[in-house]
Structures are given as C-alpha cells and as structure tokens.
Write a protein that binds this DNA or RNA. Sequence first.
DNA 1: TATTGTTATACTCTATAACTATA
DNA 2: TATAGTTATAGAGTATAACAATA
Lengths: 156, 156
Amino acid sequence: MAEPLRSQLLDSLLTVTSLLQGDMERDLAGRGLTPARMHVLWLLRGGAQRTQGALATELGVTPRNVTGLVDGLEATGFVARHPHPTDRRATVVTLTDLGLATIAQTEAARAALELALVAGMTDEQVRSLVRGLGTVIGTLAGLIEDHAQQQGGDRA
Amino acid sequence: MAEPLRSQLLDSLLTVTSLLQGDMERDLAGRGLTPARMHVLWLLRGGAQRTQGALATELGVTPRNVTGLVDGLEATGFVARHPHPTDRRATVVTLTDLGLATIAQTEAARAALELALVAGMTDEQVRSLVRGLGTVIGTLAGLIEDHAQQQGGDRA
DNA sequence: TATTGTTATACTCTATAACTATA
DNA sequence: TATAGTTATAGAGTATAACAATA
C-alpha cells in the first residue's frame, strides 16, 4: 500500500468527522441547545416518556448529570417533569410542544443533509462509499474491542 | 435515489465519527490528557515554539482559555513557559521531554491506525473510498459556506 | 493607543460522595 | 436494604469583561 494513499484515508475520515460535527453543533447552537441536551431530546422524540434513571442509563452518564441536563432543558422550555404514576421516588420527563417542534426541525435538517450528500453521486457511487465505510466501521469496532480486552486483562 | 441507501450514508458517516472520536479520546485519557490539551501539544510538536496569543489564534479560542490550558499542561509537566526574548509582555510555550515523547506516541498510534484501516482493503478499494469521501467533504464544505453566508446576510 | 496575558465571573458537561424520600 | 433523584463538591472547557504591564 502506497504511503500517501494510506494516510489520505485517515485524513479524509478525520476531516469528515470534524465538518459533520461542526455543522451539527452550529445547528444546535442556533436553537439554544447543546449536544448533550439534544441527546436527551432525541431519546424523548415521538412523545416517548422516560424516568431520569432511564435517561442516565441510555445516555451512559450519572444520574446527577441527568438532573443538570433536565434542569437546563426545563428552564429553557424544552421538557417537562411529571410525577411517576406509581413510584413516588421517580420523575418522568417528556417533551413540551417546543421540544417536539425542535426535534421535528432537527429531523428535517438531517433529511436535507442526507439529500445534499448524495446529490452529486450516482447510486453506484453511494453504494460503493457505504460499502467502504462498512469495512472501516468493522475494523474500528474490532480495534476498540481489542483495546477493551487488553484493559480487562490489565485489571485481572 | 433509494431512501434506505440515502440514509445509510449519513448513518455510516456518523458511526465512523463516533467510533474514531471515542477511540482517540480513550487513548488520550490513558495518557492523562484531554482533547483540548492534546490539540495544544499537537501545535507544538517537533519542537515548535508559540506565544500564547499565537496558540489562541490557531486553536480558535480566547486568550483566557489558553491560560487555563497551558496552566494545566504545565502543572502536569507536558509544556513549559518561557519569557519572550524581545517582548516582555509575551510568553513562549514549548514542549518538555514528556510532551515530546507523548506526541511521538500519538503519532505512532495514528500510523498504526492507518495501517489497520487499510489492512483488509485493496489499493483500488481504498482509492475508491478516498474518492467518495472527497466528494462528501466537498459537499459538506459547500453547505457550511452557504450557512455562513446566510448568517452574514442575516446580520447585514 | 494597542497588545499580551492575567484575574474575575459565569455557564456547560462531567464525576464521586453523601443524603432524603420512597420502595 | 435497595433505589430515585437530590445537594455538595470538584475538575475541565468555553466565554466576556476589566485590568496591569508592556509595546
């Protein structure tokens, strides 16, 4: 494998990562949201209800952290807290109308981005690109798995 | 363009983004570094010298922020502050031996990742993937440019 | 008068630990 | 005794504003 070609692949992947992320974060900032808070909204889309504990598990974050995220989203009007119907310890979180509308806009923006991305490519080019990315994803997942096993072995 | 194929492209890109970023951040955490601090080290690699003001410009961050990043890196031994030879207002930042060694490890890890990524692909497959990513990068850059112009128009 | 880097202040995301109310 | 969510505390990244030293 020629050296320049090899390093070009990772460079391209990192560039896409940076551009995609920057674009999405700019979009969020325009709506008064942060990535972490949008993640909460995303889990509640379609009128889903979650306890804060469930949100903590799905976000992979501590319950204390969810308190802060929901505090912020409640203060800015995106979500509402409700008492749990049977468990008086638990708090149920749902989207407000503003939250529902915001998620709808985000999904529309994502659909528009999907359209724009493939606009200059043929079906076959897109298929080839998706195939190639699938290979990359498999390789990355394997590497991460290996790292996790090594760390598990270190601890054992 | 078939709908599933279209959404599969963005899904794949987002998956790669998430995996790449997670892998690199885990790598940094293992060395007692954060992404923002590694970015500083990266700008100083190869023995480069920068004033804090130059770092602020290159990082796209406020000077106050650089004070905090350099404070942290200095306390953990990765960089050192020196007086500027001619401008007594300015502070020059350089890597310590630990900083140099850390960057060397990071570059080695990146080279290993490049090798692993292409291990299962032929040259032609890699070339095709890089071509496809190039198209995506062009499209994303165009979109971001458009957004920036719209915002400029909004302000004007 | 302009620039360099600092202190002061504030907001967000994250974590651990201790605690209250409830199960 | 265990669980849900809170307060208390802490560290990191980011920002603006005011300020001292220097150019």
